[in-house]
Design a binder for these strands. Sequence first.
RNA 1: GCUGCCGUAGCUCAGUCGGUAGAGCAUACCCUUGGUAAGGGUAAGGUCGAUGGUUCGAUUCCAUUCGGCAGCACCA
Length: 638
Amino acid sequence: MVAITLPDGSVRSYPGPVTGLDVARDIGPGLAKAALAIRVDGAMKDLATTLDRDTNLAIVTAKDGADALELLRHDAAHIMAEAVKELYPETQVTIGPAIENGFYYDFARPVPFTPEDLEKIEARMKEIVDRDEAITREEWDRDEAVRFFDSLGEKYKAEIIASIPAGQPIGLYRQGQFIDLCRGPHLPSTAKLGKAFKLMKLAGAYWRGDSRNEMLQRIYGTAWFDKKDLEAYLHMLEEAEKRDHRRLGREMNLFHQQEEAVGSVFWHPKGWTLYRAVESYMRKRLDANGYVEVKTPQLVDYSLWEASGHADKFSESMFTVRTQDERHLAVKPMNCPCHVQIYRQGIKSYRDLPLRMAEFGSCHRYEPSGALHGIMRVRAFTQDDAHIFCTEDQITAETIAFCELLKTVYTDFGFTEVRVKFSDRPEKRAGSDEVWDKAEGALKQAAEAAGLEMTLNPGEGAFYGPKLEFVLKDTIGRDWQCGTLQVDFVLPERLDAAYTAEDGSRKRPVMLHRAILGSFERFLGILIEHHAGRFPLWLAPTQVVVATIVSDVDGFAEEAVKALRAAGLRAEADLRNEKINKKVAEHSQAKVPVLLVVGRREAENGQVAMRRLGSPDQEIVALDQAVAKLTAESAPPG
RNA sequence: GCUGCCGUAGCUCAGUCGGUAGAGCAUACCCUUGGUAAGGGUAAGGUCGAUGGUUCGAUUCCAUUCGGCAGCACCA
């Protein structure tokens, strides 16, 4: 007897072993048709899995959300591999997992795939779906499987299987003529994939993710249960493209980039206004939180970078300069060594600590060309950097205070969801293991005291110390790592920073490296995409446009702009010889938050018709009232 | 950096199976003074990313190079 307990608590008994499909059939023909897989005591298994003892069972159908989609996408990857092998038999298959929103498969083939090949592959996949091939699992002996794939010329598969411990049975899945190593589970048949999938793009990817290995060809696709879901996803991609900061930067005249200054930003007046709004907000927050601001040199003799350890661990990313008189300089990639130089001026006492030294530090790093991305990943950027020189005892309090400041700032910019990662010692590092033990312990303890929930990010720390990384989520669900807090016992030692302790002894301060925005360039890019260019009033480069209906009222419109500007608002007049329809359309598209329309009626009464971005409503108010209202609304937080 | 794709007017794009190019928007000027998402007309605007090669002739074909895009690797 086998007793199967279903999720609703009901129990079904069978005289002998049954498969998941048998149980589904027993419950009802509709369920049997919809069944994709089963969950046995929590673990996903094939529908055909034999159940020979009492167990908890759930039938997985398309309604099961993420689990079901993962199955579907994994199958899509296999069906794509089958299609590729049919069309291009000389291709070797490697791996093909389900990923967020879709799947990919990496192929080894001497000839590159073309976009036309993608269409052919997609068409063949649809044929395979129509063929309704059963997907069945087989168990093989490992060495036999290695020999089998070797004989097919599938050396990558053979390599993967050979790396599985001997003696373990190997699960292979067969569908039609195609057989592949796979952990499973899979759908019962290729027909279950349906037609709501699409091959998206072609890209290179290193074998086993290592840049020393050969480059494979990766095909990405997306797959859904329903055509509607597919269309919704494609539509979402289009929307994301519309908020791309590179596109909005051009359309809104915020900045541009050009090949004579690769990896740098030309900020236009409007973009720079935005930048300054962010900067002055940050400066105000830092002032209020006990930071002092400094400015340090761009070009620094290479010897300082040798002393700090950057020459050793970071030289590939540094721009260096040799002058005519043979001096060797580097453009600073970080601000920390310079801040230590300021710290070292004069003798420091424990009474001076904690010393919170901030700089909007302009840095240059020679990033690999393939890493550059708009203003999000550049070679010239400005960090909202600060170093807190403190005693070991002060680490916890400083960490707590920093976390609070960070939260306030993110909230003010409209980000509410923040994750924290803890990154510990990397392979390439400075400082002894004892120092690292101490630094990691101190940071972990401080983070716990600050009440942070963290995930571990092993080996991702800076070369001089462990770090906390703060990752925020934007409106369309993407993650951005911005803030960081790093504990550093190494640099104060290497650069000889010291203070006189209470007992008169000479001690080393600890340095906390910290940033909230990360880099202004990147953060502004994130802000642009997060708000899709529709900035809150306090950030909008142009806050108000006064648009006239007839030229008779030009004088009043200019007066209105003058009044708005006198109140500190960023206002412009639109006196052009154009119809109001066109003016409304253009300023709406330029994402100006407030439009004040002035016609004869308004001008005669000293009024304006106020129209907010995104709403067709208008509100007729006296000019001075409008100024007062907008002034209050546009005040930056804090 | 690696793989693939791409580079035509300020922007978005069409085009030339090798005979030096066109549209819409934007710009300038003219007409229009119009009440809440694009009024009409005229004009101007291009070394077809750069260099080299093949050719009678190259924006088009080939090579190199620079830049961009996507992904991979990188993000200390």
